[in-house]
Design a protein around this nucleic acid. Structure first.
Length: 474
RNA sequence: GGCGCCGUAGCCAAGUGGUAAGGCAGAGGUCUGCAAAACCUUCACCGCCGGUUCGAAUCCGGCCGGCGCCUCCA
């Protein structure tokens, strides 16, 4: 029995069958970098980082792409307010993204493409759509012709006719049909622009994701993920663009996480109903914040309260105490080595069987549409079982280590490092960010210094064209 | 108006046909110099009303309450 995942496209749980056996092409919508991200954004990042980790845990090679939208109305607007250029604002917020994401133990994607790096590819992609009769130009803007794509609406389960009934905003006359959407926006005076066959302008909101998928994952991908509120119009439009372009099915599985609520309503920057991840992380244990974000199933709504966070902190402390207890006992036994048969380093059959049972329960829960709440329950069942073993005595050194490694393993699948390592991972991310800055300044002395410093601590850095990844030296 | 989601103990939260996981908080107990931790015990008429079924938190219908999307949104 393999992994089942809920597919928004079909409304059903389906077995995971990837395009290429053993490999997953996974795209998650990333942030528009005009500000810090809030806890609702954080939930999405944490959820899909956890799914990525779990897929890897189950043996898949995951190519995980997450974009930065660094061209956008809000970026232009906020940059203007702050009196800096849109580029400066975006750069700054990308840096803040990595800082805050690092604190939440969100790993770097395989690739973090930026819209500004893909403008030429975007223009080519739009030109292809125009050539194939799926898009048309009006006054320097280009629009997607939804009537040219009969399956438009298949993700949000609405036909263009249904949607028409709900239009809140008076339609621009420029478009042939109100359901059509912009691929390329003609520049208004004073706005940032790029040259194109249709005149100066910039990419529309949805096109970047289609193009980045195409560039970094190919015409067809396995999993496309994002917040529930992106189903329409963003993901619907992405499907239209990508499938009109390739003539093939774009993503096999669409995953959407539920909203994070505060005061019973969706956390949202535009309504002012939000709490910045950065502010929360400054006063709360990041491990507990991550634990809280995973305490509900990812598709369900999750309500933020201080009390829920307190409870997450207490619950996590229970696991931490057991791990610490196991380590302390192991240390004690080690100093008595030879004096007792309990110093035996080969784990007993009983302990092996316990560990297998706990791991199996965890996998069974997570295989079922990444049910982290159930997975946590499996961990707590394990905590009780192992505590019972410790009460009964007769646990040898090998057993202690086996148990300890199990809990560290399962927590790490959820992206929660062992308590005393949390600070370390955070620090590594910070150093990598600092090194990236240094490299950008061509200050290679400082960059190498950081690399050497980390190497001495058993951490290997690897620079890829798409960023730096790190791992423990094996 | 259209599409969709949610309502499980004081709190958080799994569970989609066979008489309710897990966590937090609480109560009682064991252990302990005291305490903590740990362990044991304890704590639910699954929003309401009908229906289907031998059997429903789970399926169907209706109602009540809350929420999301319908071109700013994760």
């Amino acid at each position: 029995m393999g992994i089942l995942l809920y597919n928004s496209l079909t409304g059903k749980k389906e077995p995971l069958v990837t395009l290429e056996p053993g490999k997953v092409r996974f795209y998650a919508c990333g942030p528009t970098v005009y500000h810090f991200f809030h806890l609702g954004n954080a939930r999405m990042f944490v959820v899909f980082d956890t799914i990525r980790r779990y897929l890897e845990y189950r043996g898949y090679e995951v190519r995980f792409v997450q974009n930065f939208t660094d061209i956008d109305d809000r970026i232009i607007q906020r940059a203007h307010e702050l009196g800096i250029s849109p580029r400066e604002l975006a750069e700054e917020n990308i840096r803040y993204y990595f800082e805050d994401a690092g604190k939440l133990f969100i790993r770097r994607a395989t690739v973090h493409p930026r819209v500004t790096e893909c403008v030429d590819d975007i223009i080519r992609f739009i030109q292809d759509l125009v050539d194939r009769g799926h898009a048309y130009e009006r006054n320097g803007s280009v629009y997607f012709d939804t009537s040219s794509f009969p399956e438009y609406g298949k993700l949000s389960h609405q036909s263009p006719e249904d949607m028409r009934a709900g239009y809140r905003i008076e339609v621009q006359d420029e478009k042939d049909d109100p359901a059509d959407f912009a691929l390329w926006k003609a520049a208004k005076p004073g706005e940032e622009w790029w040259p194109s066959p249709w005149g100066p302008g910039r990419p529309g909101w949805h096109i970047e994701c289609s193009v980045m998928n195409y560039l970094y994952l190919g015409e067809q991908i396995d999993i496309h993920a994002g917040g529930r509120d992106l189903i329409f119009p963003h993901h619907e439009n992405e499907i239209a663009q990508s499938e009109a372009h390739s003539g093939k099915t774009f993503a096999r599985y669409w995953l959407h996480n539920g909203t994070l609520n505060i005061n019973g309503e969706k956390m949202s920057k535009s309504t002012g109903n939000f709490i910045m991840a950065r502010d929360l992380l400054a006063r709360r244990d990041p491990r507990a914040v991550r634990f809280f974000l995973l305490s509900a199933h990812y598709r369900n709504p999750l309500n933020y309260t201080e009390e829920a966070l307190d409870q997450a902190e207490q619950a996590l402390a229970r696991i931490d105490r057991l791990i610490r207890d196991l380590e302390h006992r192991a240390e004690a036994l080690q100093t008595m080595r030879g004096a007792l048969d309990r110093a035996e380093e080969v784990p007993s059959d009983a302990a092996r069987s316990d560990v297998e049972q706990i791991r199996r329960a965890f996998i069974q829960a997570m295989d079922d549409d990444f049910n982290t709440a159930d997975g946590m329950a499996a961990i707590f069942d394990g905590v009780r079982l192992v505590n019972t073993r410790l009460e009964d005595g007769g646990v040898n050194l090998g057993d202690l280590r086996l148990y300890r490694d199990l809990f560290v393993e399962l927590l790490s699948v959820l992206g929660i490092p062992k308590k005393d390592e949390a600070r370390l991972e955070d620090e590594i991310e910070r150093l990598i960010a600092e090194r990236a800055e240094a490299r950008k300044r061509r200050d290679f002395a400082r960059a190498d210094e950081i690399r050497d410093q980390l190497r001495h601590r058993g951490i290997v850095l690897e620079d890829t064209p798409y960023g730096t990844r790190w791992s423990y030296e094996s």
